[in-house]
Amino acid sequence: MSDARWRQITKGYVSVQGHHSPVRAPGETLARMAMAVRVTPTELRGAGRDDAAAELELLLERAEQERPSPPQGGYAPPLDAVTAIMAALSPEEQEEVIRRLRSGSPARPRSEEYDQHRRTG
């Protein structure tokens, strides 16, 4: 979907030669947009878009079914990689990573103080 089309749908109109014409996204299109920005089916229903909510439920169900199952033998590459990285960190750094993961906050830009700590630590 183009950026222009996304804007038209979110604004609810398209402007042609200075005139605004209403735009209403088809249910499937709106469901795909909702999935991209993590809008729930309940939220779509609250906005009066039961059609898009039903489509989103189908998309989410399909995505869950298509998710690969964990490999046999307990090997999980992403988890093993994170574990290896965490093992290389100091206890303080591990606590900071865990704190950030729990809070859901994005990575903080590194500061001079942090860089100095890493060089001397």
Rank of each mutant, 00 (worst) to 15 (best):
S2L: 01
S2V: 00
A4H: 14
A4I: 05
W6I: 09
W6M: 05
R7C: 10
Q8I: 05
K11W: 14
Y13M: 01
S15M: 08
H20I: 00
S21N: 02
S21F: 15
S21C: 12
P22G: 06
P22M: 07
V23M: 06
V23C: 06
A25F: 00
P26D: 15
P26C: 02
P26M: 02
E28F: 01
T29K: 05
T29D: 11
A31L: 09
A31V: 06
M33S: 05
A34L: 09
M35G: 09
M35K: 13
A36E: 15
V37K: 11
V37A: 09
R38D: 13
V39P: 01
V39R: 03
T40I: 08
P41T: 03
E43L: 04
L44P: 02
R45H: 01
R45G: 02
R45K: 07
A47E: 05
A47M: 12
G48Q: 02
R49L: 11
R49M: 08
D51A: 07
A52R: 03
A52M: 04
A52Q: 01
A53G: 03
A54T: 02
E57Q: 01
L58E: 10
L58M: 08
L58Y: 04
L59R: 06
L59I: 07
L60A: 06
E61C: 03
E61P: 04
R62P: 01
R62S: 06
E64C: 04
Q65C: 10
R67N: 04
P71N: 11
P71W: 10
Q72L: 09
Q72A: 08
G73P: 12
G74A: 08
P77M: 10
P77R: 10
P77H: 11
P78T: 07
P78W: 08
D80Y: 13
A81D: 13
A81N: 11
V82G: 08
T83R: 15
T83Y: 15
A84D: 14
I85A: 12
M86P: 12
M86T: 12
A87C: 07
P91M: 04
Q94C: 10
E95Y: 13
E95D: 13
E96K: 15
E96H: 15
R100F: 00
R100I: 01
G104W: 00
S105L: 07
P106Y: 01
P106W: 00
P106F: 00
A107Y: 01
R110L: 11
S111H: 09
E113R: 14
E113C: 02
E113D: 12
D115T: 10
Q116R: 15
Q116D: 08
H117E: 15
H117Y: 07
R118V: 05
R119L: 11
T120L: 06
T120S: 12
T120W: 05
T120F: 00
G121S: 11
